[in-house]
Write a protein that binds this DNA or RNA. Structure first.
Length: 535
DNA sequence: ATAGGGTTAG
């Protein structure tokens, strides 16, 4: 009953993207998953994403480690594992080093997989390769007898996380016996390095797929900008009668979020509720983001309110949500509520709060938030300086922003220059804009955005000679800027638009509405046009 | 031992 409700609805989006339409008859409604899913979900131990679980496990391990007069490998292993789960892989490695110096407690067969996991999390290829060398030396992993168990899988995962898919596949190809974990690690590795085609080949080729295989492939599509493929694959798993879990639905919700299909999002949310899945972890975060991006900030807030023990990611996603809607005061209000509820902000939280300030024009508040970072021992990192540049230049303080860039510790990237260029266009600051645009063209000659921004600035000012010059430059350098387009789902139908098109049967009414909005805006003193200057 | 969430420009 649960699933059939969702999938029996028309899905024009699938035909839009050329995927086959779903067959509606294969799975009877009686075999839908909620009941089994509820019991599975309630039996599963809390994931490491859950704040309380990670803390208590770490506390237990630390307690035993500090109280025990004679440490055994078991004590070391538990602490290393707990530190990994608490996302503290650096400290896990220090504990391992301490273990190596403790003659009464040599590493056992459980130790190295944990340590390899720390290396994977850190991206520490050198240390990981040292362990690999050690294993070859003591004949656990030799040329003739390549390890076939968890150690080999941990090595594969480590090389994948460190961006060495070549070394990972070398190991994988030489394994005498591969299990599902070996295949899944390789699928994830290929997806993470952008080779989604190879990931899919392995997925199709592997002898038996488990839920992790499906989840890796679905989220792989999402991370490679193919949300429609992700949804197609999920629908296929449903046809095969495979029970999704929380992770599956995180991928599905992210895909829907990228497509901006609110109707699909609501049906998926209903499905999640009927399955009895917890929204206390990653699933809650992706639901908040999905409602935000699909235009429903009020529902996003309702989901946020319903989450019992909110972690920093929950807070950050709703703060970022209000920021995106221009409700800067609400963002700041939530930020202070978060601080008083005892949840510690991290660097992503600060990026979101600074973003809220710059979109709301709250320069002074933004500066205060920037100073507050130090008291929490965070950053500021490059991205926070980028937000500060945006904060200043957006509110017209372009000179000050330039001055700030001059004081930065590192070289500002194309994003920072692009921010400044966009602000210059909005404030008609042509001299600085030209300088920056030329700098950007040198820095990133293949990036079409800088040419387009400059050409639009010339168009704003009626300098058509310079305008055609920038267009010629684009042609000469072989730069292409694919025009953006947008789409919206209304009652199950997808409507697609490009800038200024007249394809929609109701385009006259739509442009009338836009014209009315423009009129209201200019009456309120806002110099803005929905039409591009080229049109 | 494998999968999953939150950020910055246009």
């Amino acid at each position: 009953m649960a699933w059939s409700q969702w999938r029996s609805l028309p899905s024009p989006f699938l035909s839009l993207h050329g995927a086959p339409r779903e067959a509606h008859h294969r799975r009877s409604s009686a075999s839908s998953p909620p009941f089994s899913a509820i019991s599975a979900a309630s039996l599963r131990p809390p994931r490491h994403g859950g704040r309380t679980a990670a803390v208590s496990e770490l506390e237990l391990a630390l307690f035993a480690f500090t109280r025990e007069p004679k440490l055994s490998p078991f004590h070391y292993n538990s602490l290393i594992r707990a530190l990994n789960r608490a996302r503290l892989p650096g400290r896990a490695l220090s504990v391992f080093v301490q273990m190596l110096h403790d003659p009464s407690s040599p590493p056992d067969r459980f130790t190295l997989p944990f340590v390899l996991k720390s290396c994977a999390q850190l991206g520490a290829i050198e240390e990981g390769a040292q362990i690999h060398g050690l294993l070859v030396k003591i004949h656990v992993v030799s040329e003739e007898d390549v390890g076939a168990g968890s150690l080999a899988n941990a090595l594969i995962h480590m090389y994948c996380q460190c961006g060495r898919i070549d070394l990972a596949s070398e190991l994988f190809n030489r394994m005498p016996r591969r299990n599902d974990v070996s295949w899944n690690s390789m699928i994830d590795g290929f997806a993470k390095c952008g080779d989604i085609v190879s990931a899919r080949l392995l997925f199709d080729e592997m002898p038996s797929r488990n839920i992790v295989s499906w989840n890796s492939m679905i989220s792989g599509y999402v991370h490679n900008g193919l949300p429609d493929e992700a949804l197609s694959l999920f629908l296929r798993s449903q046809e095969l009668g495979i029970d999704p879990d929380e992770s599956t639905m995180v991928g599905v919700i992210s895909a829907i979020s990228d497509l901006g299909l609110l109707g699909w999002g609501k049906r998926a949310h209903g499905f999640i509720t009927r399955c009895g899945f917890s929204i206390g972890g990653a699933l809650g975060v992706s639901l908040i983001t999905m409602y935000t991006r699909c235009g429903s900030i009020s529902v996003a807030h309702r989901v946020f309110s319903d989450i019992p023990n909110k972690n920093v990611a929950h807070w950050t996603s709703i703060i970022a949500g209000y920021a995106a809607y221009g409700f800067a005061e609400d963002s700041l209000q939530l930020f202070s509520e978060m601080l008083s509820s005892g949840v510690k902000p991290n660097c992503i939280t600060f990026t979101s709060v600074l973003n809220a300030c710059s979109h709301g024009g709250l320069v002074e508040e933004g500066m205060k938030v920037f100073d507050l970072m130090r008291t929490y021992g965070i950053g500021p990192h490059q991205q926070h300086y980028g937000c500060l540049v945006d904060l200043l230049s957006r509110s017209g303080l372009v000179e000050e922003a330039l001055e700030l860039i001059g004081c930065l510790p590192g070289e500002p990237g194309p994003v920072v220059w692009g921010t400044l260029l966009a602000a210059c266009r909005n404030h008609g600051n042509i001299v600085i804009a030209e300088t920056i645009a030329h700098k950007l063209m040198e820095l990133e000659p293949d990036y079409g955005g800088s040419y387009v921004l400059l050409s639009k600035l010339y168009a704003d000012l009626g300098r058509w000679g310079d305008f055609s010059w920038t267009r010629k430059m684009m042609e000469e350098n072989g730069v292409e800027k694919t025009p953006g387009f947008s789409w919206i789902e209304v009652d199950g139908d997808i409507h697609k638009f490009v800038m200024g098109d007249k394809f929609h049967p109701k385009h006259r009414e739509m442009y009338n509405v836009l014209g009315g909005m423009e009129h209201h805006l200019s009456w309120a003193g806002c110099r803005f046009s929905f039409r591009d200057s080229e049109q």
